[in-house]
Design a protein around this nucleic acid. Structure first.
Lengths: 219, 219
DNA sequence: GGACACATGTAACGGGTTACATGATTTC
DNA sequence: GAAATCATGTAACCCGTTACATGTGTCC
């Protein structure tokens, strides 16, 4: 029973809808601009296909949460969307709700690590290298954004307190992935010289080195 | 053109298929067992619904990559699946391929952080607390697994070198998420006492504190 | 005048999720 | 005898992806 959310026949908006609505709350944009903006920041923790982004505003306008205005600059026309009061209210309502789901990771490489005993070590090394290459764009983006804020030139400089929180996470995440792949590769390079017992010892030391130091007071 | 993968009319197996096939390479299981096993470890980086897990072996058997054997213990029968030689070969082939996609994160809370200026700070605090609660199971699981390996009692103790690599990542990730939420909450508690300028300074210091220390030699 | 950025989609497909369903066996 | 675990699914839905399509304006 119950159609997913909607306590009172409310129209089903997805988190994607709110991502778009949220952008409209920041300022007015064309969907092209939002698509580009999302590609620059949001992809890394909330990836959506362009076509999906373009599909959303139709719904928002239909629900009266956003309004479309066609502009002509020269001869080419562009549709600029802006949020309505109802849209702002709906966004605020959503922000007061607890998140629908927690952080979720999809990491095929880790599956390959787990199944590595059935393959060759060279494959695993390639996978780790691939991972480093894949995370590089985030590293680069984070560095660029960091520079923008420190220079005081970021597009949303006045949202700095919140953006820094977001940036903190993203930077930490990118570094975690990259560092993990790096140190894993480094450890692998010692394998050829290690006897079975040495390898086991090395593996155990990895388990030992992560003591989780929680003050144990956490229920 | 081209139907996604299959260079020569090969049947389309998804990464999910290989996750199952990989488990079968470890030993024989019933799907119930695999579903449970995946719930304990794999969910955290490769989440799949149970129904999905149960659907896979049909395909694997159909392709000759696995074989089903019905066992009767008492009166209840259970279907035990085991991998075939063709299955092992296919798995090895897949492991030699580069991953289809890099690490990908889906983190609604981070979207809420970004849009927090349009909501109330109390909402944001709740979101961060929620994040801590959501990551707790991974923290717990990691701790349990760590204990199992250190005690020498893990089910796949002989795969320790690889499992430790996996565990290294998962532990780091869980701690990252938890620590980030914790320190973000701590910072928020100072906001009420901070003037606008102080807040801005605090935010800037977050950007400053993450210098990415890359030796700059990375292309 | 060719490449690139701007601007906006449509069509088809499919993997995955949600929700439900069922019944036997073991354990307390 | 109730509850939990074992064991195995089906049906419907849908969000999101892939791939394609199209044309204008601007820059070099």
């Amino acid at each position: 029973m119950a159609t997913r959310s909607a306590p009172e026949g409310a129209p089903t908006l997805t988190a994607t809808s709110y991502a778009i609505l949220g952008h409209l709350a920041l300022r007015s944009w064309t969907m092209y601009e939002i698509a580009r903006e999302m590609q620059r920041n949001v992809t890394f923790f909330f990836h959506r296909a362009e076509s999906q982004v373009y599909a959303e505003p139709k719904r928002l306008v239909g629900l009266g949460l956003a309004a479309a205005r066609v502009e002509y600059n020269g001869r080419r026309n562009r549709t600029v969307y802006e949020i309505t009061e109802a849209g702002r209210a709906e966004l605020a309502r959503w922000l007061a709700l607890p998140p629908a789901r927690g952080p979720s990771l999809e990491f095929e490489a880790l599956l390959r690590v787990m199944l590595a005993p059935m393959g060759r070590d060279a494959d695993l090394a390639a996978t780790l290298a691939d991972t480093r290459a894949r995370i590089a764009p985030l590293l680069v983006t984070a560095e660029r954004i960091r520079g923008e804020y420190l220079a005081g030139e970021a597009p949303f400089q006045h949202h700095m307190i919140y953006r820094s929180m977001m940036h903190d996470f993203l930077t930490s995440f990118a570094e975690l992935v990259d560092d993990w792949a790096e140190r894993s590769l480094a450890r692998m390079q010692e394998w050829p010289d290690q006897a079975g017992a040495d390898r086991a010892a090395a593996a155990l030391s990895v388990f030992e080195k992560l003591p989780r130091c929680r003050p144990a007071g956490k229920s």
